[in-house]
């Protein structure tokens, strides 16, 4: 078995007296897609933020290949270039066009020349089907287009790992499909992905492994077939059942195809 590209080891994080993460360990191997599910407020976002040190954990270590991100001597900005992150609320830069959003990291972080950065940004937008929206501002894009632009912005940095924090939770149901499709293409290309999502259709089809996070610990974990049909923890079955109630079935295969990716 190949060495993990990302190693998350025994992460603890507390906000005041409340312990949000209580010893979480995850290994992700190159090309693997790991989907994290779990109730709201259980620490899924915190876990992702602990990976790229937006939230430094109280305890535990994170390794990206042989670089320890939790080591104070590590240049965390250099390391973050290698880890893409996509947010629930897109977090596009409001004052920049889609193209400029994608270019900013290239010119300011990677110090690319504007012409080269522009060419690369155009390519990344093409990849997510937004070439014709390049000159629009975020406010002029639909939710699905915004999220695809945000994905392009991350991909432009040529990351080795991508983190997704509920990338489709803020979207109208008919716009979810176009974003999941981009993610699916990305997975097919071999991108390593750590995804917080409750789109069970996506998880079933794309995930190599599903993790059920509850109360700050991993309550269950396994490949999709086993996870859905024969969960180790009875709580998993209960949670999956609740998900179906909450979100209906639109995350299931078939219905999510309704929202085609824009040209």
């Amino acid at each position: 078995m190949t060495e993990p590209i990302l190693r998350v080891e025994n992460i603890h994080k507390a906000y005041g007296p409340t312990e949000v993460l209580r010893g979480v360990s995850v290994d992700v191997r190159p090309g693997e897609v790991v989907v994290i599910i779990g109730p709201s407020g259980t620490g899924k976002s915190t876990l992702l933020r602990c990976v790229n040190q937006l939230t430094p954990p109280d305890q535990g270590r994170v390794w990206l290949k042989d670089v320890e991100l939790t080591d104070k001597r590590t240049d965390i900005n250099k390391a973050r270039e290698r880890i893409g992150m996509v947010f629930q609320d897109f977090n596009l830069f409001t004052h920049l066009t889609a193209l400029q959003n994608v270019m900013l990291g290239l010119t300011k972080v990677k110090r690319m020349k504007p012409t080269a950065a522009r060419a690369k940004a155009v390519m990344e937008l093409e990849k997510v089907g937004l070439a014709d929206k390049a000159d629009l501002y975020p406010a002029e894009l639909s939710g699905g287009q915004k999220q695809r632009a945000a994905i392009a912005r991350s991909l432009a940095m040529d990351p080795e790992v991508m983190l997704f924090d509920e990338p489709t939770s803020a979207l109208d149901p008919e716009l979810i499909g176009e974003v999941l499709e981009v993610m699916q293409d990305l997975a097919a290309e071999g991108m390593t992905m750590l995804v917080v999502s409750h789109e069970m259709g996506f998880a079933r089809e794309v995930a190599d492994r599903i993790i059920f996070l509850e109360n700050g610990v991993i309550a269950d974990e396994g490949p999709p077939e086993q996870f859905f049909t024969n969960p180790k923890n009875p709580r998993t079955r209960e949670f999956l059942w609740k998900l179906t109630e909450l979100y209906g079935n639109h995350g299931e295969k078939g219905s999510r195809r309704s929202g085609r990716r824009g040209r």
Partner: peptide
Amino acid sequence: SEGQLTAARSLGM
């Protein structure tokens, strides 16, 4: 929005 600052930092700025 603070999220934009977070996004910028996540790019390595």
